[in-house]
Design a protein around this nucleic acid. Structure first.
Length: 413
RNA sequence: GCGGCCGUAGCUCAGUUGGUUAGAGCGCCAGAUUGUGAUUCUGGAUGUCGCCGGUUCAAUUCCGGUCGGCCGCCCCA
């Protein structure tokens, strides 16, 4: 099997798989539309600077997972590793988007991250994405989570997921807490795992989520973020939680939930599942009120999430079956020519019709069977002369004669 | 980036304690009278045993490397 291989961590979406892919995206799009979100798209690559500044230089994503290259004009470009930064950039680039706040957008497309592939983790993967810009109110947090829950519900996977939420506070108390944490862990440096030592400067909040047994023991005595939230952050979080309850959305507060991207503030959340292996986060996001200003735009609040399409595909129900085609089987050159027009007329009526390019009757019916056709329209010289066709039903095996101009009616009825 | 498992026909897998033409099921192709599928019967084709190199008289079987997949860590969707 010395065949051409796709690049590591990429894969082809063959027709059967693509059907499930479109089902996920289509479902998400439909639900987002019900909430008034409008779809848009941004380029697959951006200036490297955008991600470095937006996501944070020190994050894993930026420091070791980006597909970065120089183009022929010597610009450093990067294949987008996530959607939020690009959408925020588009918001800043296109002044008209700020004329009607809040801006509510839906987007979907490929993302790229240089990681070790495993189940639910590829180098090119796809996300659906929702963002609300210009809404500092907790109502936006609630709505965005509600959209996610409805999408998961429609896909039939909500009951296999748990919604975890946490508050990362505002920059003020986040900074205070960060310092408190670093002080605390610095006192236990000798017992900290290697991973966590390196996390200490980079992202100390993440140590709280460590799976290392030694770290867990130290974490037991760690100061909690909840105790360090300022009043405004506390109130904000309480409103979000009350709203979720009012909307009938079940959740768990998880104080160890920390997002790896620097721009998050206040609400952070994830829908996680245990059904698809270690990469159990199916959809996650949060609030990023400082990001747009950080990128050089007007201070504008933001909140949103991204969902992994491949992960959702692993969990979701079979999409509805495609309509079964009708096959038109002409015999002879004259009938074949005539069939082209008949097939086209039927398709204009919304009937799926397949016409083979070659083959005798047996061959054509065999193929019809493989296509899971519901019926065949058989037209030979005899039928042609009389202006009729044999209409064969594949499920019952019955066959009857139908006038050519009555075909559409017969197939619809 | 770290650790572990794996790689035989289109698919799922068996097999060779190193030795002539590497197997099964499913699928695929052909036939069972002239214009009728699926079902049934008969016959057929499958493959550089992932790739490169080493050991050996001899390797798909042993060893090394490499590429790819899977599992866990890390990280995240």
């Amino acid at each position: 099997m010395s065949k051409l291989q796709p690049v590591r961590g990429t894969h082809d979406l063959l027709p059967d798989e693509f059907r499930r892919f479109s089902h996920v995206v289509g479902t998400a799009r439909d639900v987002a539309r019900l909430y008034g979100y409008r779809e848009m798209a941004t380029p697959i690559f951006e200036f490297t600077e955008l991600f470095a500044r937006g996501i944070g230089e020190a994050t894993d994503v930026v420091s070791k997972e980006m597909y970065t290259f120089s183009d022929r004009g010597n610009e450093s470009l990067t294949l987008r590793p996530e959607y939020t930064a690009g959408i925020c950039r588009a918001f800043v680039s296109n002044g008209e988007l700020s004329q009607q706040l809040p801006l509510k957008v839906f987007a979907a497309g490929p993302m790229f991250r240089y990681e070790r592939p495993q189940k639910g983790r590829q180098r090119q993967f796809h996300q659906i994405d929702i963002e609300v810009l210009g809404a500092p109110e907790p109502g936006a947090d609630i709505e965005v989570i509600s959209v996610a829950a409805d999408i998961l519900d429609r896909l039939g996977i909500l009951e296999r997921c748990v919604l975890k939420i946490n508050s990362l506070g505002d920059p003020e108390c986040r900074g205070v807490y960060r310092k408190v944490l670093v002080d605390y862990y610095s006192g236990h440096l000798d017992k900290l795992s290697e991973d966590s030592k390196s996390r200490l400067q980079r992202n100390p909040l993440r140590i709280l989520d460590s799976k290392d047994e030694g770290d867990k023991a130290i974490n037991a005595g760690a100061p909690s973020f909840a105790d360090h939230l300022n009043q405004a952050s506390r109130d904000f979080f309480a409103t979000v939680k009350d709203g979720l309850v009012a909307a009938g959305i079940a959740f768990e507060v998880d104080p160890t939930l920390v997002r790896g991207l620097d721009y998050y503030t206040h609400t952070a959340f994830e829908f996680v599942t245990t059904h698809i292996g270690a990469q159990g986060t199916v959809l996650g996001g949060g609030r990023y009120d400082g990001l747009i200003a950080e990128l050089g735009g007007p201070p504008t609040a933001g909140i949103g999430w991204a969902g992994g399409i491949e992960r959702l595909m692993m969990l979701c129900n079979e999409p509805p079956a495609e309509p079964r085609p009708v096959v038109i089987a002409p015999l002879g050159a004259a009938a074949e020519a005539r069939a082209l027009g008949i097939a086209r007329a039927l398709r204009r009526q919304g009937i799926t019709v397949e016409q083979d390019y070659r083959g005798n009757m047996k061959r054509r019916l065999q193929r019809a069977n493989k296509l899971n056709a519901r019926a065949a329209i058989i037209i030979g010289d005899d039928e042609l002369a009389r202006g009729v066709a044999q209409l064969k039903d594949f499920d019952s095996g019955d066959q009857r004669e139908v006038a050519l101009d009555a075909l559409a009616g017969a197939l619809k009825g």
